[in-house]
Design a protein around this nucleic acid. Structure first.
Length: 639
DNA sequence: GAGCACTGC
C-alpha cells in the first residue's frame, strides 16, 4: 500500500485513480487504474474468475525468492498464460542468486541483474559449534556494546521464550556491569519483538534510542522480511528459526526448530548493512554454513497441507494434479493425502472431480474443513453461529496469557467456557464482545487480543458477502447448541477421537494417540466425553488436540459412513452401510486401501518422530533465570 | 497441567 501511495504521488494522481492497490479486505482501485499493486493471494483468487488474466498486459511478481505457497501456484498458472497470450509480459524479481532456476522454469528467458543498494557486511563465524546460543548471543552483544562503535544490535532467536530469556540475561549482565564498574556504562535499550507481542510494545523498536544509548533488538524471523529497522550495524545470528511443518502421515502439525538455510542466513546478515557497513556475528561455524545447512529454505508448497491448492487447481480444471507444472513439485504423497481428505469431506467425487459442495467450497478463502463446516451450518440451519466459529478459527488464538498474570488470565478465560466445546467457547467470546459494542477496553479487561477479534470480525463480514453472492441465506438456530455441535462434527469426522484413558484419546481412524490440552474447556469438566472431534493435532511435548468439541457417536456414524458404523442394531443405519458397500467404486476401494496404509504409516512415523525429537532436544535450565524456567535448544548444527 | 516462526485469501 505504501508503495502504491508513493507511486501515485509521483504520477500526481490520487491513490485509487491511476494507481491503486488491493489486499484482502480492501480494494482501492477504479476504472482509471492502470497500475495495480496487490498481494499474491489476491491475484490467485482473480485467476479463478479469469484464468487468462485478460485484464493485465504485464504482471510483475515481486519477492519471488520468498516462494510463498501462492507465488508457487501462480508460477504454474502464469507459465500457461504466457504460452497462450502473445500480448502478455511476465517479469519476476528475486533477491537471491538463483535467477537461473526461475529463467529455466519459464523456458530460458533473459535475466537482468540490478546491483543492490546495501552496504557491505563483514561476516564473523564461530570457531567452534556453540553449545548454548542464548548465552553466546548475550556475551557477543555485551562485547559489542562495550568495545565497538555506535550502531544498534539485532539478535535473531527462534521464539518468544528464548527472546525473553535473552532479554532477561542481557538486563542482568548490564546490571552487574554497572555495579562493578567505576566508569559510567552507556545505556543499552533491550527490546524484544515477535508477532504475538502487543502492538504498543512492538512499536518501541522503531523509536530512536535516547542520546548515548544503544538499542539491542531481540527478534524472531519477523525481522527477516516482515519489518525493517534502520540503524542496525550489528547482527547476531543464532542460525536457527522455527518453522511449521505438516506431517500428513500423522495428520499433525508441529512448530519445530531448524537450522536456517544459507539464503536465510545471508538475508539476516544483510540487515546489518542498510544504514552503513556492518558486521554479522554468526554463532555457528563456517564449515556448518558451507557444508551442513541447505542452500535455500524448503519451499512452503513442499511442507504444507495442500487441501486449498488441490481445491483451487481442480476448479481451474487441472485434471491430473501430479502433472501440474510446479517449479518444485510437492511430494506426490502429500497431493494424494489432500485429495483423500477432500474426498472424505465430500468435495471430490469418486473419480476425483469437484462435487457441487466442492465448487461451493472453492468460493471461500478458508481451509477446506472450515468451508465444509460453513456449508453444513447452512444445511442444519445454524449458519449464523457457524460463521462466527469459522471466523474465530481463521485468526490466531484470541486468548491473551502474559506470563506474569497467568492465573488471572486463566480465570478470565474460564469464564467464557461452554462445557463440552472449545468451538462454542469461541462463539461465546465473540457474542459477548459483540454485546459489549466490540469495545477494545472490554477485550483488555478480559485478557483477549483486540487485534485478533477485530480480524475475526473482518473475516466474518467478508464471508458474509460471499454467502450473499452465492444467495445463501443466513439462518440461526437461536442458541440450540446441539445443532451447532452437529455441524461442527460433520466437518471434522476425520479428526475424531475416542476415549481411552483419563484425558487420553485415540484417533478413531488410525489409532493415533491424542490428548486434551489443559487449556481446553473440556479439561476441567470433571468427566471426559467418550467421543470428541478436534480442529487440529499439534505435536509439542505430547500430541495435543487443539479446539475440541464433544460429539454423539451417532452423528459420526450418520455423517461419516465411510469410517464409522454403530454397534447397536439400528437397521436404517445398517442398510445405509450395506448400500454404501455395494456402491463401492474403484476410487473408494483405493481410498480404503490408502486409509489402511496411512494408519500403518502413521504408527511408524510417530515412533520415528519421537526418536528424532529425543535426540534433537534437550531441556536445559537457564542459569540466572527464575526457578523452573527452561528453554529448548538444539544440541548442535546439523540436519 | 501447558507453551504460541511468519505471511496470505
Amino acid at each position: 500500500m505504501s508503495v502504491a501511495k508513493r507511486v501515485s504521488e509521483e504520477m500526481e494522481t490520487d491513490l485509487g485513480d491511476k494507481v491503486g492497490y488491493a489486499i484482502r479486505f480492501e480494494d482501492v482501485t477504479g476504472p482509471n487504474t492502470i497500475i495495480k499493486y496487490m498481494t499474491d493471494g489476491v491475484l490467485l483468487r482473480e485467476t479463478l474468475k479469469d484464468a487468462d488474466l485478460d485484464k493485465y498486459r504485464v504482471i510483475v511478481m515481486d519477492e519471488a525468492h520468498e516462494r510463498s505457497l501462492n507465488t508457487d501456484v501462480l508460477f504454474g498458472i502464469l507459465k500457461k498464460v504466457v504460452a497462450r497470450r502473445r500480448d502478455f509480459k511476465l517479469i519476476i524479481t528475486s533477491a537471491t542468486l538463483n535467477a537461473d532456476k526461475f529463467s529455466k522454469f519459464f523456458g530460458g528467458v533473459p535475466i537482468f541483474h540490478i546491483p543492490g543498494r546495501t552496504f557491505p557486511v563483514n561476516i564473523m563465524f564461530s570457531k567452534t559449534p556453540c553449545e548454548d546460543y542464548v548465552e553466546a548471543a548475550v556475551k557477543q552483544a555485551m562485547t559489542i556494546h562495550i568495545t565497538s562503535g555506535p550502531g544498534d544490535i539485532l539478535i535473531f532467536m527462534t521464539g518468544q521464550e528464548e527472546i525473553e530469556a535473552t532479554c532477561y540475561a542481557l538486563a542482568e549482565r548490564m546490571e552487574q556491569l554497572i555495579s562493578s564498574s567505576t566508569k559510567t556504562v552507556p545505556k543499552l535499550e533491550i527490546l524484544p519483538i515477535y508477532s504475538q507481542l502487543p502492538a504498543d510494545l512492538q512499536a518501541k523498536i522503531f523509536q530512536k534510542a535516547e542520546e548515548g544509548a544503544r538499542k539491542c533488538i531481540v527478534a524472531t524471523n519477523i525481522a527477516e522480511t516482515s519489518l525493517t529497522v534502520d540503524g542496525i550495524f550489528y547482527v547476531i545470528d543464532t542460525g536457527y528459526g522455527k518453522m511449521k511443518v505438516d506431517n500428513p502421515r500423522m495428520g499433525m502439525d508441529a512448530l519445530q526448530v531448524f537450522p536456517v538455510s544459507r539464503a536465510t542466513a545471508d538475508q539476516r546478515a544483510g540487515r546489518a548493512g542498510r544504514t552503513g557497513p556492518g558486521t554479522c556475528y554468526r554463532l555457528f561455524t563456517e564449515s556448518a554454513y558451507q557444508n551442513e545447512i541447505l542452500p535455500n529454505p524448503v519451499p512452503e508448497i513442499q511442507r504444507t497441507n495442500l487441501g486449498n491448492v488441490v481445491l483451487l487447481l481442480k476448479s481451474l480444471r487441472v485434471e491430473n494434479l501430479l502433472d501440474f507444472d510446479f517449479m518444485d513439485p510437492p511430494p506426490q504423497e502429500n497431493i494424494l493425502n489432500s485429495m483423500y481428505q477432500l474426498w472424505v469431506l465430500g468435495a471430490l467425487n469418486n473419480v476425483g472431480g469437484l462435487t457441487e459442495i466442492g465448487w461451493k467450497m472453492v468460493e471461500f478463502p478458508l481451509d477446506p474443513t472450515l468451508a465444509k463446516m460453513l456449508l453444513m451450518g447452512e444445511q442444519l440451519g445454524c449458519l449464523d453461529e457457524v460463521l462466527t466459529i469459522v471466523s474465530m478459527l481463521s485468526v490466531p488464538s484470541v486468548f491473551f496469557r502474559p506470563k506474569d498474570r497467568a492465573e488471572e488470565s486463566d480465570a478470565a478465560r474460564e469464564k467464557f467456557f461452554v462445557p463440552e466445546s472449545d468451538h462454542l467457547t469461541l462463539l461465546n467470546v465473540y457474542l459477548q464482545w459483540k454485546s459489549n459494542q466490540y469495545r477494545g477496553d472490554w477485550c483488555n479487561d478480559h485478557f483477549l487480543h483486540v487485534k485478533g477479534l477485530r480480524k475475526a470480525r473482518e473475516v466474518r463480514s467478508q464471508l458474509l458477502d460471499i454467502l450473499k453472492t452465492l444467495k445463501i441465506p443466513l439462518t440461526s438456530c437461536h442458541m440450540e447448541w446441539d445443532v451447532v455441535r452437529k455441524a461442527i462434527c460433520s466437518a471434522y469426522f476425520h479428526n475424531s477421537a475416542r476415549l481411552k484413558g483419563v484425558g487420553e484419546y485415540v484417533n478413531c481412524r488410525n489409532g493415533m494417540p491424542c490428548h486434551l490440552h489443559p487449556s481446553s474447556a473440556l479439561y476441567g469438566l470433571g468427566y471426559t466425553p467418550d467421543y470428541v472431534v478436534y480442529h487440529e493435532l499439534v505435536l509439542t511435548t505430547k500430541e495435543y488436540m487443539q479446539c475440541v468439541t464433544a460429539v454423539d457417536p451417532q452423528w459420526l456414524a450418520e455423517m461419516g459412513p465411510m469410517f464409522f458404523s454403530v454397534k447397536e442394531t439400528d437397521t436404517s443405519l445398517l442398510d445405509h452401510k450395506k448400500r454404501q458397500k455395494e456402491e463401492k467404486t474403484a476410487m473408494e476401494e483405493e481410498m480404503e486401501k490408502l486409509r489402511q496404509e496411512q494408519a500403518e504409516a502413521a504408527r511408524i512415523e510417530k515412533e520415528k518422530e519421537w526418536e528424532k525429537r529425543a535426540k534433537q532436544q534437550q531441556q536445559v535450565a537457564m542459569p540466572g533465570l527464575k526457578k523452573g524456567a527452561t528453554y529448548l535448544r538444539p544440541r548442535k548444527m546439523g540436519l
